[in-house]
């Protein structure tokens, strides 16, 4: 039995994208091919990774990084422009039916199920689409409903469910055919903190049954908490791939400083970065009241601290909090790209 249940090799996806032609008159837009030209846009740019059986693999990256596009290619909804991938040994281009039978996927969360059907009706419907014999399906559905704590509401319309319950029905749907691989695209997006926590627990439980999970997220805590290994993806490329510990460990020679400031001028980022021994500086406003967060990676905190305080002070900013922190996956992202995960 192959150790690697998902293999992705040099997967690329170009989308045709309409770009307004230079100098085109506004009214030519209505004539196809006159006001715009179609240019290929690279959404996924040669991604390779392997997922071992029983592993949770996280794809972490900012908006537009190519996470969803990658997962949609693996689930046979999108055709790769080039490259190849196998799931459970089946080729995603040539053996689409077998790939789909081997996969449970939740791509659009609560929107992937019918709100005008009850939870049970949804599952019965999809069970048929996975060619499950009716009797097996019935049992399996009851088992899943109980397991996901939905049995008492199973015969209500989904539209009356909370977001967390809808998401659980969507996951139940993905687990119906007992697939060895689960693909989850941003599984906790839009959930309240409690539901998100429950869902993460569920993901861990599902893994402990021996299933392999590929999930995408742009929450670094989530990737850190859930994943056995994380691929950090940006602009369609995987820029780092390892266990969360080792990724963070790779920054050990750097100190990570988190500053909270008042009246900060982001133009100062560049000036701070020019202090010798400072490697990366990124800043973001922390609300509307003039507070800012600044993350600063330095080879030696003690040496740079006076310069940092002096520089910030000279520009009328005020440091309200400063700590030297453990590096997070976000810092790994900053170290590789010079950007923040969220902006």
């Amino acid at each position: 039995m192959a150790e690697e249940i998902v293999r992705v090799e040099d997967l690329r996806k170009l989308f045709p994208r309409k770009v307004r032609r230079e100098g085109a008159k506004p009214w030519t837009r209505v004539i196809p091919g006159r006001g715009s030209v179609t240019e290929p846009f690279v959404a996924v740019d040669g991604v390779s990774f392997e997922i071992r059986r029983g592993e949770i693999f996280g794809l972490l990256g900012p908006n537009g990084a190519g996470k969803t596009t990658t997962i949609r290619m693996l689930s046979t909804l999108l055709e790769p422009t080039s490259g190849s991938a196998t799931i459970n040994g089946y080729d995603i281009r040539k053996q689409t039916s077998l790939v789909r039978q081997s996969l449970g996927a939740v791509l659009t969360g609560e929107r992937s199920i019918y709100w005008k059907l009850t939870g049970r009706e949804n599952l019965e419907y999809f069970a048929t689409l996975y060619h499950m014999p009716p009797r097996t399906a019935k049992q399996r559905i009851q088992e899943l409903l109980e397991r996901l704590d939905l049995a008492h509401r199973a015969d209500e319309y989904v539209e009356r469910y909370s977001s967390g319950m809808k998401q659980r029905i969507a996951i139940a749907k993905a687990l119906l055919a007992n697939p060895p691989v689960l693909l989850l695209d941003e599984p906790t997006i839009g959930l309240d903190p409690q539901s998100a926590r429950n869902l993460r627990e569920l993901v861990l439980e599902v893994r402990s049954e021996g299933r392999t999970i590929l999930l995408t997220t742009h929450y670094m805590e989530e990737a850190d908490l859930l994943s056995d290994r994380v691929g950090i993806i940006d602009s369609g490329r995987i820029i780092a791939l390892d266990t969360p510990e080792r990724l963070k460990g790779s920054l050990r020679q750097l100190d990570v400083m988190k500053l909270e400031l008042h009246d900060y001028d982001p133009a100062l980022d560049g000036v701070l970065a020019s202090i010798p021994a400072v490697e990366n500086v990124v800043s973001s406003p922390a609300g509307n009241d003039g507070a800012w967060y600044v993350s600063l990676h330095a080879r030696d905190t003690r040496a740079v601290l006076p310069s940092v305080i002096e520089l910030v002070g000279s520009r009328s900013g005020r440091i309200t909090n400063l700590q030297v922190a453990q590096p997070t996956l976000e810092d790994v992202f900053i170290a590789h790209t010079g950007k923040q995960l969220r902006d």
Binding site: L98, Q101, H131, R147, D149, L175, N178, P180
Partner: peptide, 22 residues
């Protein structure tokens, strides 16, 4: 979450039993 654990994924189930009936 409920207590019962689910059957482990199986490779045999992953093979669709497609028939005229299904």
């Amino acid at each position: 979450m409920g207590q019962s654990t689910l059957t482990a994924p199986s490779d045999t189930l992953a093979r669709p039993r497609v028939s005229a009936g299904s």
